[in-house]
């Protein structure tokens, strides 16, 4: 301890060292404050932002809940061999409406935030957004999990399903991604363009609405394609084959869960 104390004594710690030390300390403080990204908000703006965040959260969550329940309903319809078309149609309509509502919520959020923040504040906010979103985010598949497993399951157990050559040929045709891939790619492209629009303070609302229309068209097409695939699968497979397929799907989904989480309570 003694040498350290001695270091700061008047005789040893001369003015040159002191000046260098102070300059470096000030420099480090300047660098750190320059890096600090913060939107300087007035008290009123802060209050508006808090209220806006709460409204947005409740709005999006209620629409996502609606989507979830509609998806579950559709999944229940698809779990039985005999398709209840009326029930499926209602669920598909609910999904479409919730998807559209969500896209509308995003747009109205973008309009509102521009009414609260100034251009400079908005630009800083955007920087914070891109910083936070930089790096890998959650992967999101463009289709339901069990739907994907269904496709894989048919192909993997085609021998035990004892498909006839004709059935096998028709199953292969169903499994081709075809239109789905195009819809997914179009939707991805439109979403990127929409994000570009949303990153600018001068929002072109008309262009945004057009892109939202394009995205929603692809969403509807994806849901319709999935439904027609369900109809086709039933037209190819017998009821027994379908039951065996469901068993395989449940088994494979269980295996995946086991693979990810070995402990039984999870």
């Amino acid at each position: 301890m003694k040498p350290i104390l001695g270091l700061f004594g008047r005789s040893q710690f001369n003015s040159g060292w002191r000046a260098a030390f102070v300059a470096l300390a000030l420099l480090s403080l300047a660098v750190s404050s320059a890096n600090a990204q913060d939107v300087q908000l007035s008290a009123e703006q802060k209050q508006k932002m808090k209220a806006f965040a709460a409204n947005t959260r409740s709005g999006t969550e209620s629409q996502r809940d609606a989507l979830k329940s509609a998806r579950e309903e559709l999944g229940a319809v698809y779990s039985s061999y005999k398709l209840d078309e009326a029930r499926a149609s209602k669920a598909i309509d609910r999904i479409g409406k919730a998807q559209q509502q969500l896209l509308g919520v995003h747009l109205s959020n973008q309009v509102k935030i521009r009414q609260i923040l100034t251009k400079d504040q908005f630009n800083t906010f955007q920087q914070m957004m891109s910083k936070k979103m930089h790096g890998p985010g959650p992967e999101r598949a463009f289709f339901r999990e069990d739907e994907a497993f269904e496709l894989g399951a048919i192909w993997r157990i085609k021998d035990s399903l004892k498909l006839t050559p004709d059935q096998e040929k028709r199953v292969a045709a169903v499994l081709r991604p075809g239109n789905n891939m195009k819809n997914m790619q179009d939707m991805k492209r439109a979403t990127e363009q929409l994000n570009q629009l949303y990153s600018s303070f001068n929002l072109d609302a008309a262009a945004a609405r057009k892109l939202i229309g394009d995205i929603h068209r692809d969403q509807l097409a994806l849901t319709r394609n999935a439904h027609s695939r369900q109809q086709t699968i039933r037209s190819i497979l017998t009821q027994d084959q379908f039951a065996a397929l469901r068993q395989e799907i449940i088994k494979r989904m269980g295996e995946r869960r086991e693979h990810r989480r070995p402990s039984p309570e999870l």
């Binding site: 998806r71 979103m133 999101r140 598949a141 939707m187």
Partner: peptide, 23 residues
């Protein structure tokens, strides 16, 4: 966690809400 085709802008909205809530 919704399917991406259902809510393709989910990540942006969630990030936006997170930032606003911390202000």
């Amino acid at each position: 966690v919704v399917v991406a085709s259902d809510d393709p802008l989910a990540r942006q909205t969630d990030t936006m809400i997170d930032i606003m809530e911390r202000m």
